[in-house]
Computed example of a mutant assay.
Amino acid sequence: MSQSSRAGRRGQARWQDRLRHEIRLFFTALQFFTRLPVPAWVGFKPAWLQHCTRYYPLAGWVVGVVAAVVFALAQTVWPQAVAVLLSMAAGLVLTGAFHEDGFADVCDGLGGAVSKERALDIMKDSRLGTYGVTGLGLMLALKFAALSALPPIWVAPALLLAHPASRLGSAALIWRMRYAREEGKAKPLGRRMRDREFLIAAACGGLPALMLVMTGMLPPAGVAWALMAGALGAAWMARTLARRLDGYTGDGLGAAQQLSELGCYLGVLAAVGG
């Protein structure tokens, strides 16, 4: 075998190893952010958690597709409001209400005028207080109201847009902010993303928006309004966390995702009014 052939085989082997590693990172993200099982061959290494956030928005694709399919099927049998509730329930089951739990904890921790240390202690408490219950109830109600008010043909595309885009908004906090705790459930993720990693996340989170516009499933104005409102939701949460906690927490990432997701729905709805 010639030297050039051996070099070509080594290059192909390195490329295959790299691709296999990236697939492992995606499944690690899927396992961390959802309740879905992953193939046994994937395995697990703690170090992978530090790099899997690049595929956080790609995990949102899976959640968005499931929610959209449930809505589309349910709509053929029941009214839109029922289909929306079933779609939301599917998303909650799929993620274990992971992000909603974080949002409720942030409402409890930051709802009152308390110190950083006290806020972090409150957010670690598994019990929900008045702020958490009220905030989570309003969040779910607003999602339901926004999706129910959309034209039926826009609901599934809105779900396909919002879930990846909102997780990109949450990943941006990891990219630009420091981790606020010495330890916690998001500590393995508490390393700033490299610019290249965030570019991968941005591609995963932004591609659905481009596809929805190109296929005509959502009008450009609806996508633009959704992305702007979603970005504002994540930015507001980032500013609040920086001011109150001097960094993000795992609960803060969940809260940013929830506000960004809601912003996407409200943005699409604003385009309907326009």
Rank of each mutant, 00 (worst) to 15 (best):
W154C: 03
L142V: 12
A145R: 15
G135F: 08
M123V: 04
L136G: 02
I153E: 13
L136R: 04
Y131D: 09
G137T: 13
F144W: 14
A146K: 09
L159T: 00
A149S: 15
K116S: 14
L128D: 04
L147M: 10
S126Q: 11
I122D: 06
I153L: 09
V133A: 11
L147C: 07
S148H: 06
A149R: 01
Y131Q: 10
L140Y: 05
M139H: 11
K143N: 14
A119S: 13
G112W: 10
L140V: 13
A141G: 08
L138G: 02
E117I: 03
M139V: 05
A146G: 03
R118H: 15
G135S: 09
V114E: 13
V155W: 06
A141Q: 14
A149K: 00
L159E: 00
G132M: 07
L120Q: 05
L160G: 02
A113Q: 15
W154G: 00
T134G: 13
L128Y: 12
F144S: 01
L120V: 00
I122C: 08
A141H: 02
F144T: 06
P152T: 13
K143A: 02
V133M: 11
I122Y: 09
K124C: 11
G137E: 08
K143T: 03
K124N: 15
K116A: 13
P152E: 12
G135A: 11
F144M: 04
L128S: 14
L150S: 03
T130L: 11
L120K: 07
A141F: 14
L150K: 05
K124T: 11
D125E: 12
G129H: 01
L160A: 01
